[in-house]
Structures are given as structure tokens and as C-alpha cells.
Design a protein around this nucleic acid. Structure first.
Lengths: 147, 147
DNA sequence: TGTGTATTATTGAGAACGCAAATGAGTGTA
DNA sequence: TACACTCATTTGCGTTCTCAATAATACACA
């Protein structure tokens, strides 16, 4: 029980902090950033919308809304798939890659700072390992295509 | 970095699951439940709104909105403080205590299930200990008045 | 081929929450 | 007393997300 309530609090506090900073400096939300990052790590800089949803732990409709904003800003482009006309790809644009580049240094720094202020290096690994146990979390953070 | 993104995913996935269940069975959100629980554990079944905000990792305005719903449902009552007329207490009503009682068994069970399915007991403790390091998380989950 | 089912994506409606601004109340200082 | 400052709370507004319903496509099988 303590573990659960603390997960709630830790997420709320950390998210609010990082969101505010990212928003102020670059006009991006944390999820905007994560989406751009995932695209940048994927082959061809693009990902099926549904895969993006799974990796971000959002619903498909959440992804539609998220990408709406990014497309409007010209950071992401909609591409269609010739072999399956149901799927739409989200593809990183040049502007999107540049935006990610510009934001990443500061953002990664803030995250490092937040964690290293309170944890030793091996504790961070431990935390990551434990969190990966939750359903749907494992294997969502690297560039593997998530078959 | 992995630790951070996994914290995001784990929270999103777990919250969505437990929220849906709690909502379907009792018409409460996770934060509704947490608020009722915190009140039930506090002296006199009441808490200053601002303390509730801190313990839930919400902003004061978030608490106002949350309590709006609970007051409408008769689960919580607004009480004033004689010694400082700025503060308003949120006080658990009989109905609120009953509602909490009714929901707690199933909800706690779901949480246990979710965690015990993926973790050993000592790993849960470890996770709780690590999460407590985040700023503002420590000491928010028991009944201490959070001076 | 025709039909039923699963999958991908979008839309409408609504919930939850944050920020900024405003209000009213306490506190300290001259 | 008068003034500035801080604190608890609420309100308006915008953002982000979910759920349920819908549409279009793919696929499996008789």
C-alpha cells in the first residue's frame, strides 16, 4: 500500500516539476518530448500510431490528440502505409528533430539532477529494474520495434 | 533516463487499471479514495484543505475541485476553523466513512494483487523505500499531521 | 465470393488538473 | 492605526487525457 501511494505521489511531484520546466523552455509537454524521442529512436524516424500509444502508455485516442498538437507545430508528419491502409505513421520532421535536439540537453539534465540528488547510481538502476516489472512497461524504452 | 520513463509508464498503466476498477465498482476515482483514506486516518476525520493538497501531491485548486465532488456526494463536509478563518477543514461524514469502508476491501485487494503478481514482498518494500526519496513523498502516507 | 471478426484510427463528450489572478484573513512593523 | 506581506482558498480558462461510439480496412473461413 505504501508502495502504491508513493508511486502516485512521486509521479505527480516529478511530472509537475519537469513538465513546467519543459513547457517554459521549449513549449513541450513531457509526453510531447517522449513521443519525439521515441520517433527519433525508431527506424526511419517513424512509428505506427498504435505502437506509439503502447510505448507511451496512452490510449489510441490520446495519441491522436497528442499528435494533433505536434503536427500543427510541424514537428511530426502523418504518413500512410501502402501495405495496410488502416495504419498511419507518425514521422519525425526536420523541425521535429531539431526541436528534440534543442530540448534534450536541458531536459535530460533536469532528469539527471532530480534523480542524482536523491539516489545513488545503483539505486537508480534498481528502481528502473523494479518499475519494469509493471505490466506493459518492460521493453518500451529502447528502439526495439515492439513486435 | 530509463528509470524516469518507466516511472511514467508504470504510473500510467497502473493508474488506468485501478481507476477503471474503482470507478466501475464504487464510482470513485483513485484520488477520491486517497482523500477519503487520508481523512479517515487523521485526528477527528478532518484535515485542512492545504494539508490534504500536500499529502495528495495536488495543488490547492486541485483539492477544491476534488472536494467539490465529494461534498456533492455527501462524503465529506466543509468545516471552518475558529482560530483562523482562512482555513477550511474537510471532514469525513458518516456516509463517507461507510463508502470508504465499502470500497477499501476490493481496492486494497486489487492493489495487493497487482503488486504481488509482479514482486516479492521484500521488493515491494524496496520500491516503497526508493520512491520515498522523491521530494515531498516521504511521510505523506501515514496519519502524522505533517507539521 | 460473402460474411463475421479483429484491428487501426478518429471523434464527441466529459473528467481531472494546473496556472494565474482575485479574495479575504492573519501577522509584523512603524 | 496604517501599511505591507504572507497565507488559504476559490474561480476562470486552457490543456491533456479517457471512454464510448464510429468508420474503414484487413483477414479468415465457408
Amino acid at each position: 500500500m505504501r508502495a502504491w501511494t508513493r508511486l502516485l505521489r512521486a509521479h505527480a511531484a516529478a511530472t509537475r516539476l519537469l513538465n513546467a520546466e519543459l513547457q517554459a523552455k521549449h513549449g513541450l509537454s513531457v509526453n510531447d518530448y517522449e513521443a519525439l524521442y521515441l520517433l527519433s529512436q525508431s527506424e526511419g524516424g517513424r512509428l505506427k500510431r498504435i505502437d506509439l500509444a503502447r510505448r507511451l502508455a496512452l490510449t489510441p485516442s490520446g495519441v491522436t490528440r497528442l499528435l494533433e498538437g505536434l503536427e500543427e507545430g510541424g514537428l511530426v508528419e502523418r504518413t500512410s502505409c501502402p501495405s495496410d491502409r488502416r495504419v498511419a505513421y507518425a514521422e519525425l520532421t526536420k523541425d521535429g528533430a531539431a526541436k528534440l535536439e534543442a530540448a534534450s540537453c536541458g531536459h535530460v539534465g533536469s532528469i539527471r539532477e532530480l534523480f542524482e540528488e536523491h539516489f545513488a547510481d545503483d539505486e537508480i538502476d534498481e528502481l528502473a529494474e523494479l518499475l519494469a516489472r509493471f505490466p506493459g512497461v518492460a521493453g518500451t524504452d529502447d528502439s526495439c520495434p515492439a513486435a
